[in-house]
C-alpha cells in the first residue's frame, strides 16, 4: 500500500501540473517522490524580477502532517534566508498546516521574496540593508538574480542538450540533478563567502 504521504505528494504533483500557480514549478526527482526540486521565478516589479531560483524540498513520510525541509539551491540574498539556503518562514515551521500543499509552499516563498520580515533575520546583512540602505540591498539582489541565470545554465545544460531543444520543460528541470541535490546545496553554500566578495566585480564586468 502506498503511504499517505506518497499518495498526497502524487496528488500535489498532479495539481501543480494541472493548475500551476504563476511563476513557480516543481516536481519530484526521478527516483524519489520524497525529494523534490522546484523553481521560483522572481516576482515582477520587484528586485527579484527575472530571477530563476532553484529550491530543494525534502519531504518525510510524515508529510503533510509535518512540513518539508525547503532550501534554496540557487544563491539567495534575502533577510529570511540563511547562508545554506534554509528559509525562515513561519508556515514552514510553527504555523505549518497539513492543509498546505506544494503549490501553497512555493507561492508563499515566492511572496516572501518581496515581503521579507526583517524582524527575524536569517541574514543580518540583508536585513540591515533592507531597512537602512534599500539601494544597496537591491544591488545585492540584482547580483543573485544574475547569478541565478548562470547557475541555471551550468546545471541544466546537460538536460536541455539531451532533449535537443532549447525550451526548458519544467518537468525536466528537477530530475536533471536530483541525485546530487544535497551536494549541490552545500556547494552553493560554500560559494557564498566568495561570492559576497567577488560578486560586485562580477556584475561590473
Amino acid at each position: 500500500m502506498t503511504t499517505p504521504s506518497r499518495r498526497r505528494l502524487m496528488r500535489d504533483f498532479k495539481k501543480l501540473q494541472e493548475d500551476p500557480p504563476a511563476g513557480v514549478s516543481g516536481a519530484p526527482t526521478e527516483d524519489n517522490i520524497l525529494q523534490w526540486e522546484a523553481i521560483i521565478f522572481g516576482p515582477q516589479e520587484t528586485p527579484f524580477e527575472d530571477g530563476t531560483f532553484k529550491l530543494s524540498l525534502e519531504f518525510s513520510e510524515e508529510y503533510p502532517n509535518k512540513p518539508p525541509t525547503v532550501k534554496f539551491i540557487s544563491k539567495m540574498f534575502h533577510p529570511n534566508v540563511y547562508a545554506d539556503g534554509s528559509i525562515c518562514l513561519d508556515i514552514l515551521q510553527n504555523r505549518w498546516s497539513p492543509t498546505y500543499d506544494v503549490a501553497a509552499i512555493l507561492t508563499s516563498i515566492q511572496s516572501l521574496l518581496d515581503e521579507p520580515n526583517p524582524n527575524s533575520p536569517a541574514n543580518s546583512l540583508a536585513a540591515q540593508l533592507y531597512q537602512e540602505n534599500r539601494r544597496e540591498y537591491e544591488k545585492r539582489v540584482q547580483q543573485i538574480v544574475e547569478q541565478s541565470w548562470l547557475n541555471f545554465g551550468e546545471n541544466e545544460g546537460d538536460a536541455v542538450m539531451k532533449d535537443g531543444g532549447g525550451d526548458v520543460d519544467p518537468e525536466e528541470i528537477p530530475t536533471s540533478n536530483g541525485s546530487s541535490g544535497g551536494g549541490g546545496a552545500s556547494a552553493a553554500a560554500d560559494d557564498d563567502e566568495r561570492m559576497d566578495e567577488g560578486g560586485a566585480s562580477g556584475s561590473n564586468a
Binding site: 499517505p4 499518495r7 498526497r8 496528488r11 495539481k15 503533510p64 497539513p98 492543509t99 498546505y100 500543499d101 501553497a104
Partner: peptide
C-alpha cells in the same frame, strides 16, 4: 472554504 484539493484528500482517505 477549506482548500479543496488538500482537505478532500484527508476526507477521502
Amino acid at each position: 472554504g477549506f482548500p479543496d484539493w488538500t482537505c478532500t484528500d484527508f476526507c477521502e482517505f
